[in-house]
């Protein structure tokens, strides 16, 4: 079993050990600034202080879709270029993406309680994110099911790409379904016409979320590489014992 397969990941590991502490510190600082700004931002004249949930909700919604895009690029890397780091990147991103999607759903539901008087409405955006969450869980289930990491990576890559094709269709169909069933009386969350005093903290929070994702992703990739090395060593051990 050639350890040399992981020659490239070895360089990556040294890079991670150098970059990761800085990323983590940057994420903490960005969160500190972003949350402070969010606290100081004016309340909405309609929604009151509950509008502050937006600063947690909207960046997680962006990331929930952004991470699928990251996974799709990793999937192309796995299937087309067969890059050894690509399948590690895809596998490491899936649970993080599911976590951010769940944060988006939970904050959205908490925000919805004072707005709509109920924790869940089948709002078009929330519903799309919910379907996205189910798709993340499908990819994770696929990784769980396959014993052999490289095959699991290739199959998950196919599912990820099919999902990437399907996501715009889901978005379109859910929007269409929503307008059919609920005329536009619903308050739209994270509306694009947003006051600059609210936008600045929101962008800062988005930067913080992104840094957090980058740090978590690199750490998860490092763990996955180490996990595979342990697996390889065990296989070698079994082979030696067998011969």
């Amino acid at each position: 079993m050639p350890i040399s397969d992981f020659a490239n990941p070895s360089k990556f590991l040294t890079l991670v050990s150098r970059v990761l502490p800085w990323l983590a510190v940057a994420a903490v600082i960005a969160f500190a600034i972003g949350l402070t700004q969010a606290m100081q931002a004016p309340d909405d004249y309609q929604q009151g202080a509950t509008v502050k949930i937006m600063y947690l909700h909207v960046p997680s919604a962006w990331l929930s879709m952004g991470i699928w895009a990251v996974m799709s690029i990793a999937a192309l890397g796995t299937l087309v270029w067969r890059h050894p780091l690509a399948d590690v990147a895809g596998k490491a991103a899936a649970p993080i993406g599911a976590a951010f999607t769940l944060i988006c759903l939970i904050t959205g539901s908490l925000w919805g309680r004072p707005m709509w008087g109920t924790y869940w409405v089948w709002d078009a955006r929330l519903t799309s994110v919910f379907v996205l969450f189910l798709m993340y869980l499908g990819v994770i289930a696929l990784y769980w099911t396959a014993e052999e990491p490289s095959r699991a990576a290739r199959l998950a890559a196919i599912l990820t790409l099919v999902g990437a094709i399907n996501l715009p269709v889901v978005k379109f169909s859910v929007d269409w379904w929503n307008t059919l069933h609920q005329p536009a009386s619903v308050i739209r969350m994270g509306a694009p016409t947003i006051d600059p005093s609210l936008l600045k903290p929101l962008l800062m929070m988005a930067v913080a979320y992104f840094l957090l994702f980058a740090a978590l992703h690199l750490a998860a990739m490092r763990n996955e590489i180490l996990r595979r090395r342990v697996r390889t060593l065990r296989l070698m051990q079994a082979n030696e014992a067998a011969s």
């Binding site: 379907v131 189910l134 499908g138 289930a141 099911t145 095959r151 699991a152 399907n166 889901v170």
Partner: peptide, 30 residues
């Protein structure tokens, strides 16, 4: 697609439903 994935994974049944059902939502809607 789900059937092919479950064959490649050598697992069938419920996994297929979990993988496939979210993708059928647009079909159901329209």
């Amino acid at each position: 697609i789900g059937a092919a994935l479950s064959v490649a994974l050598r697992r069938g049944g419920v996994l297929l439903a979990v993988l496939v059902l979210p993708f059928t939502i647009p079909v159901l809607i329209f």
